[in-house]
Nucleic acid binder design. Structure first.
Lengths: 355, 355
DNA sequence: CGAGCGGTTTAAAGCGCTTTAAGTTACGAT
DNA sequence: ATCGTAACTTAAAGCGCTTTAAACCGCTCG
C-alpha cells in the first residue's frame, strides 16, 4: 500500500540546511563553489531526509542524461556476462545503463528506439545484426559502439576480439598436442563466423596442414553441433581430401553451444572425448566452465571488451573524440578437459585445469 | 558524429499545426477534447517533423511514469524468456519496462534502488531472494510483485506456478508409463525446492509409492545434476528401502539444468535414457526443447505468468486495488523423448512429441 | 576611500511537456 | 435580442532540478 510519503525534494533539503536550492544542488553533485560550512549543512540535511535526487527532473534540467543504452539478446549467456561487466565499467565512470532486450517480437530497431526515448547518450550494441548501412545511418545521429563483431560502418566504434586469432590459438594448441587432422564446425552466416573460419584456414596453412582443411556446416546452437558431429563421420569427409579417408582427431567449433551439441552426439555414439577426439569451443561460457562439461574454449575476455566499449563511449561523450575507433582485443585460450594429446585413449575426466 | 539536429519539440509541432501546445499535447496522447480538424493538423505536423515526445519531460510533468521495473538474473534463460513476455504484456497495457540486472556485484537491493531512481511505479521481481521481511518492507512504500516463488510477505503480490502440482504431473506421467521407483533430485535450499520436493513426496504417497521415496541432494545446475547421478548408483540407495536393493527407473530433477547434468553423466556411464531410466526436468527451458536434448519437462507457462504479473501491477496502478493477491498458475507437463515406458529398452531418439 | 576582486550565494530563467482554469465560439432555448 | 451551454481552445502555472547571471561580502590595492 504505497502511501506516497511525499519524497523529499531539493527544496526541502535546501531550506532545512538554510541555503538556496542552487547551493544544495551544487553540493549534492560535488561541484566546486559552495564553502565547507554550506557543504556540511546540505549533506547533513540530505542525509536526515533520506534525499535522493529525482533523476527525471535532473535529466530534464541538465543537458546530459549520463545514460548508456545497451541492446542485447537476453537468451545469450555471453551477452549476459558482458552486461555485468558493462554495468561495472559504466558505474566507474558515473554512467548508468539502460538495457533494451531483443525478443522475438522486438527487433533491434525497436530496441534502439526505446533507448533513444530514454535519451541515452550512446548506444552499445551487443553483436548487432543490423546491416552496416543501418549502423552507419544510426551513427550519423548518435554515438554508437558495436560490440563483438566487425562493422564496416562509417562513424561507428567497434570493440571486438580478434576471432581469427582466437581460432588460431585453438588450432595451435591442438597442433602442439600432436593433432594433424583438425576440423572446423562452422557457425551461422555472418561476419563473426566468416572471421573465425578464416582464422581456422589460415592457421592450418601456417602449420602446413592446409590440405587437411575440413569445414563442416554448423550453426550457433547445440542442435547444429550435433548435426556437425554426424557430418564428420560421413564419407563426404574423404571427398575433401581425396584418396585418403581420415577422420579428424580434433575439432574446433564455432562456439561453446555448438561444441556442446557435438560433444553430446559424439559421446552418445561411443566416441571418447578427449581420448579419440579433442574438442575446442569458443566463448568460454559459464557452461564450458562447469566441471561436468570442462570444455577447452577460447575466451573473448568479456571484461576487457566491456571496459573498452564503455571507454569508447565516454571518450566521445566526455573527451570529445569524433573519429571512430576499432579496438581489437586478443582472445585467450582456456585449456580444459576436452583436449588431450593425440592417441591418448585415456579419458582424462579432470582434464587440464586453467591456471 | 551526432550533430544534435535539434529534435523537434511539442512547440514546433503546435506552431506548425497552427494550434497551441495544449491542443497538440492532447491530440498526441489521444485524449478527448480537440476537434477533428485540429487532430488532423497536429498529427500531420507531427508526422512531417518526425516528432517523438521527450519521455523525460512528460514523465516530469505527468505524475505518472508508466514504468514497470524488473529485476532479473541475466544468467538465467528462464528469466530471459519471462522478460520477453513481460515486455509484450506491458506493451499491451501502455507501460514500459526498465530492466535491472542482478550481477555478482549488484545485489537485489541495489537493483531495486536503481529501478526506484527511474521512478518505476511497480517492481516486478523475478524469483527474488530477498527475505520475506525485506519484501514486506519494500511493499510498504511501493507496489511489488514477486514472480515465480512463494512469499509470505505482507502487501506483496505473488504470481507463481504451482510447483508441487507440476512435479506431481511429472510423477503421474512416469507412473502411467509403468514406473514404480521414481527418485527426485533436490534443488538448492529455498522456497522453490521445498515446494517441488513436497509435490514429489505427496504424489508418491497418493500413488501408494511412499516407501519408494528417494530424494537425493542436487542443486540448480548441471554440476549438481551430475553429482546426483552418482548418488543414484550408490549403495546408500538401498538403505532408504532396506531389504530390497532397487534402482529407480525414473528420475524427476529440480530443473532442466540439473536434469541435463544428470543425463550427461548417466549416458557417459552407459545408462540408456529413456531405455534404462526415464528423466524429467523442470522449466521447459529452451535447451530442453532442442532436438538434441529433447527433455521431458514441466513448463511454468512463462507467458501466462508474465501476463498475470503485469496484470497484477496494473490493477494496483490503474484500478486501485490495494489488497495483495496470490496467483497460482497450473504448470503443464511437456512430454518429450527422455521418458518412456518402463522396461522399454529401445532408445527412442525422436521421443514423443508435444502437441 | 572608492574601485577592484576572488570567493560564495542566490534569484530566476529555463528543460519540454501536462494540466487546470479561464476564455472563445457557435447555437438553440427563452 | 439575451442567456445558457456545449464544444473547443489556450494561456499560464507548474513538475523538480540545473544553471546563468547577478548580488554580496569582506578585503586588498592604488
Amino acid at each position: 500500500m504505497p502511501s506516497r510519503p511525499a519524497r523529499p525534494r531539493l527544496e526541502d533539503v535546501a531550506s532545512r540546511a538554510g541555503v538556496s536550492t542552487a547551493s544544495a544542488s551544487l553540493v549534492l553533485r560535488g561541484r566546486p563553489g559552495p564553502g565547507a560550512a554550506t557543504r556540511e549543512a546540505v549533506l547533513d540535511a540530505a542525509r536526515e531526509l533520506g534525499y535522493r535526487a529525482d533523476r527525471t527532473a535532473s535529466l530534464l534540467a541538465r543537458r546530459r542524461t549520463q545514460l548508456l543504452g545497451v541492446t542485447m539478446d537476453v537468451s545469450s549467456t555471453f551477452h549476459g556476462e558482458l552486461l555485468e561487466d558493462l554495468q561495472a565499467a559504466a558505474d566507474d565512470r558515473g554512467y548508468d545503463i539502460v538495457v533494451s532486450p531483443l525478443t522475438r517480437t522486438r527487433d533491434e530497431r525497436r530496441a534502439v528506439e526505446s533507448l533513444l526515448d530514454f535519451r541515452c547518450e550512446a548506444l552499445l550494441l551487443l553483436g548487432p545484426r543490423l546491416p552496416d548501412a543501418d549502423l552507419a545511418a544510426l551513427a550519423e545521429e548518435h554515438h554508437v559502439v558495436a560490440i563483438g563483431r566487425r562493422a564496416q560502418a562509417a562513424g561507428v566504434d567497434v570493440v571486438r576480439a580478434a576471432d581469427d586469432v582466437g581460432v588460431g590459438l585453438a588450432v595451435e594448441h591442438l597442433f602442439g598436442l600432436g593433432h594433424r587432422h583438425i576440423a572446423f564446425v562452422d557457425g551461422p552466416r555472418g561476419p563473426i563466423a566468416t572471421l573465425r573460419r578464416q582464422g581456422y584456414r589460415r592457421a592450418l596453412k601456417r602449420l602446413g596442414l592446409a590440405d587437411g582443411t575440413v569445414v563442416v556446416d554448423g550453426g550457433g546452437d547445440e542442435e547444429s553441433g550435433a548435426r556437425a558431429a554426424a557430418a564428420l563421420h560421413l564419407p563426404q569427409l574423404s571427398k575433401e581430401a581425396p584418396g585418403r579417408v581420415r577422420m579428424p582427431s580434433a575439432v574446433v567449433a564455432f562456439n561453446d553451444r555448438a561444441a556442446l551439441g557435438l560433444l553430446d552426439r559424439l559421446r552418445r555414439d561411443g566416441v571418447d572425448v578427449p581420448g579419440d577426439v579433442s574438442v575446442v569451443g569458443y566463448d568460454d561460457s559459464l557452461i564450458a566452465r562447469l566441471a561436468t562439461v570442462d570444455l577447452t574454449s577460447v575466451s573473448q575476455i568479456p571484461q576487457a571488451m566491456a571496459t573498452a566499449a564503455v571507454e569508447a563511449a565516454t571518450q566521445r561523450l566526455d573527451a570529445g573524440r569524433t573519429e571512430p575507433v576499432e579496438l581489437v582485443l586478443e582472445p585467450q585460450l582456456v585449456v580444459r578437459g576436452t583436449t588431450a594429446p593425440r592417441g591418448d585413449t585415456t579419458t582424462r575426466r579432470g582434464g587440464i585445469r586453467e591456471p
